[in-house]
């Protein structure tokens, strides 16, 4: 008996040690991400705008991760929310001459309203029904963007969208954009971390773990799914609007299926369900085609292939590296 107890104690101790080392390692990807952003900011050059896109995507993927990684739900249609907010921003600033900040706020508000209306019936669905419903929502948004020419100008798209700025001050330099986007992405990732370690985040994670057990503990599962969907839509909307102001142009292709493919690859590279994963995955994936210039023509195919390989061989992405480190291979 005594021996047994001692062994248990030892086990617990090693578990704690590897636990703290794991926590340290969990920070590592985030630190690398920040280092890349800093390096780019100081180094300058064309990488500045590339990393800026990476940061916008990081926001989009962070939202996706809240809904899918934490809450365990499925959405192939987050691009719809980016599109709604992006077009709203574009139309309000160009056609109606609004300021960027109110247009952006309006875009996110519209996104939330649509997400509420669509999410309420959609989230009663499960598995492949939910997957197909959300995919359809994304495709419908694309169709509307193409067909509603009087507002969206169809395939032509809208150009001349003003850059980010507030009270007459505009961010005109690429570096300025990078700094601002790094700040916003940092806040976005920080908010996700705060949510994860709160009552709300625990309830969301419980829904992913076991809906039956969550309900038995008094958690209103439908409510938390919808809440996670709304938060994810807000992130998507923010990313969609930031994109149009940084690029100055919007067209239906910006928010096509390409965006969904890219976002999922980023999510799986960084590690689904982790806090820093979306940021790291977004920056790595956005830098890849820049590193291999010739690779650009078949980006989508390559992203798809990377995604398949990750799903089969490393379903937890870079996050599984820390397991390799501590000599534990699981799942």
């Amino acid at each position: 008996m005594r021996l047994h107890a001692t062994i248990l104690q030892l086990k617990a101790m090693t578990a704690q040690q590897s636990g703290s080392r794991r926590r340290l390692l969990a920070w590592l990807p985030g630190v690398i991400g920040v280092a890349i952003v800093l390096y780019t900011f100081i180094g300058g050059g064309y990488l500045v705008s590339v990393v800026s896109f990476g940061l916008i995507y990081a926001l989009f993927v962070t939202g996706l991760n809240l809904f899918m990684g934490y809450t365990g739900q499925v959405s192939f249609g987050q691009n719809a929310f980016a599109a709604i907010s992006g077009y709203m921003s574009a139309v309000l600033t160009t056609t109606y001459g609004w300021g960027v900040a109110p247009a952006l706020a309006c875009g996110i508000a519209a996104t939330l309203v649509v997400a509420l209306v669509v999410g309420y019936p959609a989230l009663r669905l499960k598995g492949h029904y939910l997957a197909m419903a959300t995919l359809a929502i994304g495709l419908i948004a694309y169709e509307v963007a193409v067909q509603w020419q009087s507002v969206t100008q169809g395939y032509m798209g809208i150009s001349g969208i003003p850059p980010l700025g507030v009270f007459g001050y505009e961010i005109t330099s690429d570096r300025g954009n990078l700094a601002f986007l790094a700040l916003v992405a940092g806040l976005g990732v920080g908010a996700a971390a705060l949510i994860r370690h709160s009552r709300l985040g625990r309830a969301m994670t419980a829904v992913a773990g076991s809906e039956d057990a969550a309900r038995a503990l008094g958690i209103d599962v439908a409510r938390y799914k919808l809440l996670a969907f709304l938060i994810a839509a807000a992130y998507a909307g923010l990313a969609g609007s930031l994109f149009v102001h940084v690029v100055g142009f919007v067209s239906p292709e910006v928010y096509g299926l390409h965006m969904v493919n890219l976002a999922f690859t980023m999510l799986y590279v960084g590690g689904i369900g982790t806090i820093a994963g979306p940021l790291v995955g977004a920056i790595i994936i956005i830098l890849l085609p820049e590193t291999f210039r010739s690779f650009r023509d078949y980006q989508d195919m390559a992203y798809g292939a990377v995604l398949i390989l990750l799903l089969i061989y490393a379903p937890r992405g870079l996050a599984s590296l820390s397991d390799l480190w501590s000599g534990r291979a699981r799942g």
């Binding site: 192939f76 598995g127 299926l257 390559a302 798809g304």
Partner: peptide, 19 residues
Amino acid sequence: ASTFVMILATLAVQIVLEG
């Protein structure tokens, strides 16, 4: 693997074949 992973993998196959 979960339903979702399977769906995502087959959707990725679709994209790869298109590419």
